[in-house]
């Protein structure tokens, strides 16, 4: 379960202060498919980064499976993220110098999974996402939809209970968007907790509920 209590995130510069999130309190239960909506600058990505343990809140408390994230050292935080959370991004964020296979195996290397077990896991997910034939290609040689599927495959092999997706269909056409969202639904049906950020209502409606963010506040949940 994800619990955020009065989370505030401020960015300070030499002569400015920006409050990206302001007293956000939110609970996401295991198995939920939560969609976060909001305009640009509303704090969606910041919220995602905090949930994903990529960033620390300025104030407030964040509990991930009853573990207070604030108390963790950077190293333990990284370890926690490795065990609990995987990411899918709008820009795919694939390693351009790695092949598709090598991109997918990256999290498995981080988890020190090697040899036959690693190969089996990657083959299975590639077959499922129909990207087996892209195995030796580089990100620059495949389409946006294919890249996003590779990104999802990479997130999937991490085998984490939570998947955080930041505008996963933002750069895709409608057909590919539907395909990607279908994948997320199937992951949800397997018991994964999905937190998906989108500015598109059609995408957001695929989830169990929508969290509306405005100017760093939760405006409503529906």
């Amino acid at each position: 379960m994800i619990k955020l209590k009065n989370i505030t995130k401020e960015y300070r510069g030499a002569s400015y202060k920006t409050t990206a999130l302001n007293q956000v309190t939110l609970d996401i239960k295991d198995g939920d498919f939560a969609c976060v909506m909001g305009k640009s600058g509303s704090g969606k990505s910041t919220l995602l980064h905090i949930i994903g343990c990529m960033d620390m809140p300025s104030e407030g408390e964040y509990y991930l499976d009853d573990i207070c994230v604030k108390d963790l050292s950077p190293y333990k935080l990284d370890r926690l993220r490795r065990e609990k959370i995987s990411f899918v991004f709008q820009g795919y964020e694939l390693m351009s110098r790695y092949t598709v296979w090598e991109n997918i195996e990256l999290p498995l290397n981080a988890k020190r999974i090697r040899g036959k077990k690693k190969r089996t896991i990657i083959k299975d997910i590639m077959e499922r996402l129909e990207i087996t034939e892209l195995k030796d290609k580089y990100p620059g040689q495949i389409s946006g939809g294919e890249q996003q599927r590779v990104a999802i495959a990479r997130a999937y092999v991490m085998d984490t209970p939570y998947i955080v997706a930041d505008e996963p269909t933002g750069a895709l056409d409608e057909a590919n968007s539907d395909r990607i969202l279908d994948l997320f639904e199937s992951l949800h049906n397997e018991g994964k907790t999905i937190i998906l950020v989108s500015h598109d209502m059609d995408v957001a409606q695929r989830g169990d509920y929508i969290i509306n963010l405005q100017d760093g506040h939760i405006k409503e949940e529906k």
Binding site: G52, M54, P74, Y75, D78, R79, R81, R82, S86, F87, F89, E93, L94, M95, R97, L106, P107, A110, K111, R154, M158
Partner: peptide, 21 residues
Amino acid sequence: SYHINRHDSSVMLSCGMTRRD
């Protein structure tokens, strides 16, 4: 050898690598 840049470092973080790694 490939020079690991900031982008790649961020991606590696998101893929479960620790900062120490």
